[in-house]
């Protein structure tokens, strides 16, 4: 069910990126898609009633220094969170580049409307 909602968010982003005429709105649509995928990744690692996968002193067995079984059984999967962090860094880079291209295009053409920015054809 939640996955379906996530996919709905993805499709909303795709719709926005494909249909909208304004360059900034297209960028927003792409970012909505990106976050839908990030949300999906986070939800993959989730388990009901799970705890954050952060180790502190209370999670270690005092005698052996190993992780307690309770921690291992209830913590959520940390790997998707690391993946999402990396994906966010990447999307930050491409977002900054996209916005700067939008700003430069506005400076050249004086509009954000892609139907009026049409020098390339064919």
């Amino acid at each position: 069910m939640l996955y379906a909602l996530c996919f709905l968010l993805f499709m909303i982003g795709l719709y926005c990126a494909v249909i909208k005429k304004n360059m900034v709105k297209i960028v927003i649509g792409i970012m909505v898609m990106e976050y839908a995928v990030n949300l999906f990744l986070i939800m993959l690692g989730y388990r009901t009633g799970g705890i954050a996968p952060i180790i502190d002193k209370s999670q270690l067995e005092p005698s052996t220094g190993q992780l307690t079984a309770a921690f291992l059984n209830s913590s959520v999967d940390p790997l998707p969170q690391a993946l999402v962090l990396t994906a966010i860094v990447i999307s930050l880079g491409s977002l900054a580049l996209m916005i700067s291209i939008c700003v430069r295009t506005y400076g050249k053409y004086g509009t954000f409307d892609i139907t009026q920015i049409r020098r390339l054809k064919g």
Binding site: A82, L85, T86, I90, L92, G93, A96, S100
Partner: peptide, 26 residues
């Protein structure tokens, strides 16, 4: 680099070139 990106985006009139090599892997 984030400071540079935001700073250069805030100058619209001057000539700028954003360096978006922020995608260094964590």
């Amino acid at each position: 680099s984030l400071f540079l990106v935001i700073f250069t985006l805030s100058i619209c009139c001057k000539d700028f070139k954003t360096d978006t090599s922020t995608h260094k892997k964590e």
